[in-house]
Design a protein around this nucleic acid. Structure first.
Lengths: 340, 340
DNA sequence: CTGAAAGCGCTTACAG
DNA sequence: CTGAAAGCGCTTACAG
């Protein structure tokens, strides 16, 4: 029954098979199925029916080769051990999948040169879109993105420079608002404790600093910055260091919840009363922060919403929407619990 | 300078360009670069040099179309919010990347029908390899895998049925050993508390049960099974439920560390002394377990090693190694801390 | 709105 | 060990 004209038949149903059954040309099938150009409604129906009958599924490799573009979206994020990025990724993938895009994930470990390497690899696959975290990167990476012509959305930030597209919130404002809240609660020596020191962390630092300066409470010895990766253990260690300081601090604002959780556990271990002796605040409202003893005051960040919005924005750009710079600000909310 | 023969030139350096410069045919370039078939050493050198000079990078889409196989490896895992799978994934990706494979990630949320849907989507891309979690799945999924002919490795398990390939450890033995340890420590009413109830959890349950039966300590009311997703909050709730039981339990073995961590926090909140009043054990040695108060006794599982070994095994299979059933057992170790 | 022709950049048989 | 031919399954211009 099979045509003898296919020397290397893969057995797979192709566009031509559908075209033959529908009584049109392959190009028309291609267009009808993609909705790319106006095709007569009755033909579209016929093509659809034929495709269904045959169980046709397009070959992504052929499409990519012919069009010079794949159905991949490359995503570059710092790491997966921070739940923040897991939420972001799940949301991105969820929305992108529904539109037929596959997600290619690259984990940079907060290393700009690793990011560059990963991007080069991903670009070989000619992704249809690109999602990166933040705006800061090596000049080479920036150039690579620009020259590739691949639509790109920046996550977790809102200050879009010319020609770029962002979805996030103001890290600076969030840092400032938490600091202001602590000040309003009556705390006077409020330390800022940070690890990793990635750009977003430094923006939170800047926000905290501005609030303290405004209130006349700023003192540079209140800044505790550690470039090591963030972790519970590091939070515990930093807590103990900070508690040794004189004059004593009465509150510590940690740049991420894992540090703050570690601090809370260390406080428990060493018998330090929170918030009576010292208040503890975190950032991101990660899993478990509401379970701590006492429950952790933190900044709730809308990462699922950011992921979804970024995916939608990217899909618009990939469809050739006018690409003026734009930024979507999804905000944040203070989550006040009992540790402050 | 450019040949006028390229009406739709992409500007990209192709195999033919390299061939021309090297003075050989494109096929020879293809073979030399892939090391697929014996090519004269001097030609290989010439080809390599030409490729370097031109900055040639192969087009994955063209390769996939011609060969019917992509450079993608599809990975199906339950979820990313469990650090276990993050570690697994990072290890897999690390090893696979070095061999030029891109990883396509599908998150099943422990749902067999979602797994099936994801697999169908991934199979459209004709992955060169497949990595799945565990052995249990829908019959349709099983068939899909078998019929696809794509080499497949199963993660986190060791009992490989005919024709399959596994890397992991015996969940059952691990559950049994922790239970035996608790028994040896003198605990007599040892509850098993589990959430999610995925196959691996149930294997741990079976191991725990066999140890208790052997010691004459088994009582079915000691089994606390909750199908809800695992979380700190759920661990706290289960802890409180279990503590209400009479006769009282003197130890609780949680199927995952997040539950156990939640229990530890609940114990602290409610003033229950651990391990004096009740001992707490977990599974997986996740982040933070060593920071708990008291530090959590748990089972340390070699997920990074499993990821690396699975990637290497898969690469062997993809290169057409003899594919007898095989299982790599990477073991586990009890991590005894102060909660027991 | 529809189609015939050419081509995307590789690899697979098939020869020699 | 090397190569000429054909083909993988689509889409992009270019016509009409």
């Amino acid at each position: 029954m099979n045509s003898p004209l296919r020397p290397r038949a893969t057995g797979r149903v192709t566009l031509s098979d559908v075209a033959q059954l529908a009584g049109v040309s392959p190009i028309t099938v291609s267009r009808a199925l993609r909705g790319e150009r106006a095709v007569a409604p009755d033909l579209v129906a016929k093509v659809r029916a034929a495709a269904d009958t045959l169980g046709y599924v397009p070959n992504p490799a052929a499409r990519a080769l012919a069009s010079g573009q794949s159905s991949h979206v490359a995503v570059l994020i710092p790491m997966l051990s921070n739940a923040l990025f897991v939420d972001l990724l799940e949301a991105l993938q969820h929305t992108l999948r529904q539109a037929g895009f596959q997600t290619l994930i690259g984990i940079t470990h907060y290393d700009p040169s690793e990011e560059e390497t990963l991007l080069r690899e991903q670009l070989l696959h000619r992704p249809a879109g690109l999602v990166v975290t933040g705006l800061e990167r090596t000049e080479a990476t920036r150039l690579l993105i620009a020259q590739s012509g691949v639509p790109c959305v920046h996550l977790m930030t809102t200050d879009a420079p010319a020609g770029s597209h962002c979805v996030g919130f103001s890290q600076r404002d969030a840092g400032r608002d938490m600091a202001r809240h602590l000040i309003a609660q009556g705390y006077r020596r409020i330390a800022f404790a940070a690890a990793q020191l990635d750009p977003r962390t430094l923006q939170r630092l800047a926000g905290w600093r501005s609030a303290l300066v405004d209130a006349g409470l700023y003192d540079e010895v209140l800044e505790w910055l550690n470039p090591a990766p963030s972790s519970l253990a590091l939070g515990a260690r930093m807590f103990e260091q900070i508690m040794g300081q004189t004059p004593p601090v009465d509150a510590i604002f940690f740049c991420n919840d894992d540090l703050a959780q570690g601090a809370l556990l260390a406080a428990m271990r060493t018998g330090v009363a929170v918030p009576q002796r010292v208040a503890i605040a975190g950032f991101n409202d990660l899993t478990g922060s509401d379970q701590m003893v006492p429950p952790l005051t933190t900044v709730r960040t809308p990462r699922a919403e950011i992921g979804h919005a970024a995916a939608r924005m990217l899909m618009g750009l990939m469809q050739g929407e006018p690409s003026d710079s734009s930024a979507i600000d999804l905000g944040y909310t203070l989550q006040i619990r009992h540790s402050t």
